[in-house]
Design a protein around this nucleic acid. Structure first.
Lengths: 227, 227
DNA sequence: CCCTTTATGCGTACCTCATACGCAAAACCT
DNA sequence: AGGTTTTGCGTATGAGGTACGCATAAAGGG
């Protein structure tokens, strides 16, 4: 049988506690001391189960994502669109996911399940394996980038609401010289940046939807040009 | 005239020094003490010109980008493609750019110049102002995401070369159960992940090129459907 | 030319963190 | 029971950000 003192906690416990802290107070609040306190252990006890904080962050990264939801029936475009929105929703539930400095390609089961889900959406298409990966990587990159952007902005908003809303369009009008940046000035004058709802944390966001549509349209074009 | 002791440095000097440190040793090496040393001042002297380290990072963020290069002649698709690659190249020159936790929308002149440049590429198209912004935002999101990914991976590679190259495909084969994730397993079996050149830091990268092509194709489709 | 005003330079000190080290405590084996 | 092995954790070190207050210049007024 196994010798030595029984472990009172294991790496999974630590990861869970760390995730709870991150969910409640943000990634910045995740310190070894804080996590240990959550578990009722001393700080240094954690190091028996986790080599370093970086390793803990990697574990958190693997465990952070929920299970991918089943895709709807329909053609690949609907499925991929649904998938993209599901990714965005999942990330929004754990915004700190994007703040973790990742150290390599995904090997955790959850992340791989999401990858599999996206690939399955392309199952009926004539795309080759490499192309499927390319499509999914591109889409995933776009979604994560958009999520990061919206999260960053909403965070900046909480810290300093004044600089947003109508302010931004106004600020740009002051800073941009129409002679130096005519294209940008034209867009500013059109009032595109005067929206109140630059963030719209609640729903999916028009920018995201538009970009997603463009990307999927591109995939459709690629498939068409290939048949 | 202005009273009081003459400032020996100003915020711009500090920003420059901080950027020099980041260029040479990475963003992690940028500490107030390190920057002060670079300038021959004491640590606390910096706080006369910069409210906090966060503010310094924001200043660095604004100054980090170079001037956008002039776009080539041709149709919008060539221009935007060129722009996207230029963004990627510029970011690769200062990889730490993406590590700075940004706090709001861009107001710095350099970043706005890039925005203007991208918008000017769409000048000849029938797209409205909101659509132009949508296209540019989407593209920018994609490019930054791709840059972040390639940077992250190349960094992980330096720290731990063993886990890459053929290893990754092998690792996946061990972890992925074909019954649970059939689509992913199929792609793995096709050998897509066995490449030596997952990163290819040198050139533009096939994934990036493919994703870029898809997105631009999507924009073309959108324009076509609008005329 | 000295003194007051004002802004900068910076030494000291405090706090938060990650983490190395070594000993104490517990659980198993013989 | 005594030895062995593994975990728990107190202590200590060092890095980093920054508040505070005094020292130090530079300009203006008398």
């Amino acid at each position: 049988m196994k010798r030595g003192r029984k472990p009172s906690i294991d790496a999974a416990d630590i990861t869970r506690a760390a995730i709870a802290v991150a969910d409640a107070e943000g990634l910045a609040a995740v310190s070894m001391a804080r996590v240990a306190q959550e578990l009722g252990n001393a700080t240094m006890a954690l190091y028996r189960h986790v080599k370093s904080k970086d390793e803990l962050l990697a574990l958190m990264w693997d465990s952070a994502m929920e299970e991918p939801p089943p895709l709807p029936d329909g053609e690949w475009r609907d499925k991929l669109g649904f998938w993209a929105k599901a990714v965005l929703t999942a990330i929004r539930r754990r915004p700190w996911f994007l703040q973790i400095p990742i150290s390599g390609p995904p090997v955790g089961p959850k992340n791989l399940a999401w990858l599999d889900s996206a690939l399955s959406a392309l199952e009926g298409t004539p795309l080759g394996p490499g192309e499927k990966i390319g499509v999914v990587m591109g889409l995933s990159t776009f979604v994560q980038g958009e999520a990061r952007l919206s999260f960053t902005l909403s965070q900046g908003f909480e810290e300093n609401p004044a600089q947003f809303n109508h302010q931004y369009g106004q600020t740009l009008r002051e800073v941009v010289d129409p002679r130096e940046m005519p294209s940008l000035a034209a867009v500013i004058e059109a009032g595109v940046f005067d929206l109140d709802d630059v963030l719209d944390v609640g729903d999916i966001g028009a920018d995201f939807d538009f970009g997603l549509r463009l990307f999927l349209e591109g995939v459709a074009g690629h498939i068409r040009g290939r048949e």
